[in-house]
């Protein structure tokens, strides 16, 4: 059930371990989904665990690619290459931008 503010900004963090083909696909997919659905109400931060391994602990990352919705709360996570848009939208509980009538 979506109860979140449709104007709220999303802070997303994508954890990867090196720019593998799967990581590249995940980044491309989330950028595309955000562009199509969030209309600028987002920012995406990419964390490469090969360069910053300590950051995995904060969000308790045990597999990559993992996309974390850090804001708005509650924190949500999805894993994989994010290639099924519907599952990404549902998994992150994104509220698509609705144009004024």
């Amino acid at each position: 059930m979506t109860t979140e503010n449709p104007d709220e900004k999303y802070h997303l963090r994508l954890y990867i371990a090196g720019m593998t083909p799967t990581a590249r696909r995940a980044l491309s997919n989330i950028e595309s989904i955000c562009t199509d659905n969030l209309q600028g109400r987002y920012d995406i931060e990419v964390i490469d665990l090969l360069e910053q391994p300590a950051l995995a602990e904060g969000d308790q990352i045990i597999a990559v690619p993992t996309l974390v919705r850090r804001l708005p709360p509650p924190l949500r996570k999805i894993i994989g290459d994010l290639s099924q848009t519907e599952k990404v939208i549902v998994g992150l509980n994104l509220v698509p931008y609705k144009k004024d009538p």
Partner: peptide, 9 residues
């Protein structure tokens, strides 16, 4: 453990 929902089937 909070692994996250699989984004693909």
């Amino acid at each position: 453990s909070h692994i996250g929902v699989p984004s693909v089937l």
